[in-house]
Amino acid sequence: MAKQTRAERRRERARGKLASAGGSMTFVGLLLLVVPGFMQGTIIGTLGPALRPAGWAALVVGAALLGLHYVMARMAASPQAEPIEQSRPTVRATRPTPPPAVATPREPVLASEPSQPTPSRSEPSPKQAQQWSAAVLAAIEWRRFEALCEALYAQAGFTTRSQSHGADGGIDIWLHSKHSDVPRIVQCKHWQSKAVGVKEVREFLGVMASHQLKSGTYVTSSTFSAEALAFAKANGIHAQDGTALLKLIGQRTTEQQAALLAVAYEGEYWRPTCASCGTKMVERNSTKSEGSFWGCANYPKCRGRTIPKSKVSATV
């Protein structure tokens, strides 16, 4: 006889309790239904109709418990086939070893061409003159020319005021003297091959009138037309061309002339300055026409006008 397990013993005790409870409930139900019929005329016989529902309920419960006991007994008696586990060999899937990667040559990636002309490299600094001459005025750009004029007036005892870029309202330099409360204004025009005409001088007269000034100075590295000179003389404008400017510089001491020469040759004196933002311009190659031009290094943030290299001294 096989030895029972603990679980089997618990199930057997449970089945015994079900059978005992089912038998007891059935016996009680029969007593409640049968006994009052044999005891007519007594108290129990009188209570017979009231005890019948309880008797039937006890019979039903007892029958249910006995039926449950019968089902559990049949289940315990039926043999259970134990599953047979078949061990299968574990087969590991092996991945095929890929062939070694062959490095394929790649085509070089070409940088996209800029939509705007690219700036050229910095040009070598032109040879600097050791003495003042017309060649110095021709070599410097417009901003150095204005700085030269301002330094020259400062040596003469004036207190000067100017701005390096932006709209100046037609006035490049303000002059203040301790001998007069009325300021003077100066317009500088760094031109070479083009003479200053009466149109430019007339515009300067309009600037003087807007500030209620009766006199002013117009300085150029070039010359004035005869009509412009006549108009300037008739309207209190002191016209000073390149020759007169060099003569005025020649009247300074040797040390003062050297100081003015240092101002003219300061920094990249040959490279134009953007009149809008004050940044040095860069050389660009045109894609629409032949030749190169000077353009602002801050383009497109700055929309300052460009200057053809062939006309660098005739546009400012």
Rank of each mutant, 00 (worst) to 15 (best):
S125H: 02
S125E: 14
S125W: 00
P126H: 04
P126M: 08
P126A: 05
P126E: 09
K127N: 10
Q128K: 15
A129L: 15
A129D: 15
A129K: 15
A129H: 15
Q130Y: 01
Q130K: 15
W132F: 01
W132I: 07
S133I: 00
S133D: 02
S133K: 04
S133N: 02
A134E: 07
A134I: 03
A134Y: 01
A134F: 00
A135H: 06
A135I: 02
A135C: 03
V136Q: 04
L137P: 14
L137W: 05
L137E: 14
A139D: 08
A139C: 05
I140W: 04
I140C: 05
W142R: 12
W142A: 15
W142F: 11
R143D: 06
R143G: 03
R143E: 03
R144M: 02
R144E: 00
A147P: 03
L148W: 04
L148S: 13
C149Y: 03
C149Q: 10
E150N: 10
E150S: 10
A151E: 08
A151N: 06
Y153C: 13
A154E: 09
Q155Y: 10
Q155M: 14
A156S: 12
A156I: 04
A156F: 05
A156N: 09
G157N: 14
G157A: 13
F158M: 11
F158E: 12
T159W: 02
T160D: 07
T160R: 12
T160E: 05
T160I: 07
R161A: 07
Q163A: 04
Q163P: 02
S164H: 13
H165S: 15
H165M: 09
G166Q: 13
G166K: 14
A167V: 09
A167H: 12
D168F: 01
D168R: 13
I171F: 00
W174Y: 09
W174G: 07
L175A: 09
L175N: 09
H176C: 03
H176P: 01
S177E: 06
K178Q: 12
K178D: 15
K178G: 15
S180L: 02
S180Y: 00
S180Q: 03
V182W: 01
V182S: 15
P183K: 06
P183R: 06
I185C: 02
